[in-house]
Design a protein around this nucleic acid. Sequence first.
RNA 1: GCCGACGUAGCUCAGAGGUAGAGCGCUUCCUUGGUAAGGAAGAGGUCACGGGUUCAAAUCCCGUCGUUGGCUCCA
Length: 650
Amino acid sequence: MSSQNIEITLPDGSVRSYPSGVTGMQIALDISEGLARNVLAAKVNDEVWDADLPILSDSRVALLTWKDQEGKSTFWHSSAHLLAEALESLYPGIQLGIGPAINSGFYYDVDFGDLELSADELPKIEARMVELAREKNTYQRTDVSKQDAIAYFKEKKDKYKLELIEDLDDGTISFYKQGQFTDLCRGPHIPHTGFIKAVKLLNVAGAYWRGNENNQQLTRIYGVSFPKQKELLEHLALLEEARKRDHRKLGKELELFAFSEKVGMGLPLWLPKGTRLRERLEEFLRKAQVKAGYEPVITPHIGGKNLYVTSGHYEKYGKDSFQPISTPHEGEEFLLKPMNCPHHCEIYKVRPRSYKELPLRLAEFGTVYRYEQHGELHGLTRVRGFTVDDAHIFCRPDQVKEEFLKVIDLTLFVLKALNFEKFVAQLSFRDPEDHEKYIGEDAVWERAEREIAEAAAEKKLETVTEYGEAAFYGPKLDFLVKDALGRTWQLGTIQVDYNLPERFELEYIGSDNQKHRPVMIHRAPFGSMERFIAVLIEHCGGNFPLWLSPEQFAILPISEKYHAYAETLYKAFVEKGFTGSVDHRDEKIGRKIRDAEVNKIPFMLIVGEKEEQAQLVSVRKHGTGDLGQMKWAEFIEMMQKEIEVELKYN
RNA sequence: GCCGACGUAGCUCAGAGGUAGAGCGCUUCCUUGGUAAGGAAGAGGUCACGGGUUCAAAUCCCGUCGUUGGCUCCA
């Protein structure tokens, strides 16, 4: 025991002095008992430690609780151990793979041998976990030699753990034990199992040992846990809400899109209502792009194979793409286009370009086809044919930053107009360790990365920087958007590209009368129409803003007698550019209202004798209820005003 | 692609060796009804597809297609 004092710097900047060997928990106790009760782990100099590990030298220390993401991760990792303990007690003889924390919960991979675990058994396992948690067993860390570690798992006959130990260096191996269960683990863990008050095992799935399909398949049990029962209930409610908002379900119910086995998997069919929605989005962006100086272009759905040999896509993706189609007699080969950029490069090249006409911004809602593996397909978010709200900006190197700023503006405009208020911009830069993976000169990259960062900073974007996430051809700025349920989606992207201008030998004549190479910026504020609409559907739960709604109004006559009046109204609304319908069915008004509500139609107009006589409409708003009567012209104004407000950024 | 689950009427689903069921929707009739489901009748199915086992298959077995949960977020 050293009598020496060390200095502990807390996150608020305050510095406290403690004897060397003080633990995170002791510091917490010193600050307040309440804090101590909630401490899950300690972050010491950016490394997460067990709260009871002695701190030996001057350090920055943050005490992690449930409020911290790292606290949650530690909590879930410890929960995974608890799951393993429960499984071992219920199914002796099983072998364990790995059991990490994940974004939202944890899993454990288990080899049950000949045993088949069905989802029906999960509640039993949960109950066992809760039972074990109540024992408040501490998670005890022991450092072990490689030899001892091997001996332990040989005895236990756990081949997976033995394989893991093989790859570890002697002297770096540790075990954690809670209750009767010991696991190979680097840690850290929460102080004791008693923190885990609520557990839910969510599903069972197959997963390969080490993610390699040639390896043994293990049973993966996913779960989530919380320090309070209430938080579990809230989490489950959120999952339930996510199920309700699933774009595949709503897409079917609201008749937005469909799939057909005959057309082919991953090839969406846009139904009339979905098309209306999508075209409104496209129109919205088209208008914004015209203002921002883009020029629309249109290119074919296929391109000569040579085009993609030049672009490099053939070499890189050729094998994993739809195979070339060929002409019947000459055998010329064409590829379904997987990207729009090569076509746009050819547009750039139709004639020599002067520096004076740069930046040249070519925009196209270009449909592309990419082969995705069977198992990768998912609703509209992973498909084989989709439309990119693509544009390529050809500019001089000195214009990159300026263009980036403009593209950021456009992207923010789009996100705001669609009520995506929360997002972070991810700066995807080169892996600093390995510049070999990337093409282009260091100086050019450094400049581009600096300028992207500056542009993001100037726009006051909240950013995260990810090294190694750049494309091989240039750095990116990706928009990670949070939806109404707090889930993150990568939508828009802006990418700098030095590769294609090189490969296509793009040039412009500079003011020095010399040839120069332009820089290309790829950008797509939506990303793809399919994916964006999927996210939009889930974000708003199918309750689209009025301007996007495929059916903006439904006129509901009280009875047949008022059909003529309903028709007059219908014509007037359509005249003003709104879409909707008249419910001619021989049903009572309650029924018509119910069906319109179920179909999430923003405005219902009930018309009967009173309305017809005074040229009124009774307005009912979806999800809100009766708004009372008004002149039908006033109603049109009301809709127009609502759309104006929705598009206030326009 | 690999593993598991699933595929029955337009939709949501029940049925588990013995000739196909419900609710909603659809059609027709009655009803002309004022803010979330009026009543009656009717039509609608090669039980995904192809083989096999069986006296008999939607049901059991094999294959194909499709849908779906997963397939390192590294002890």
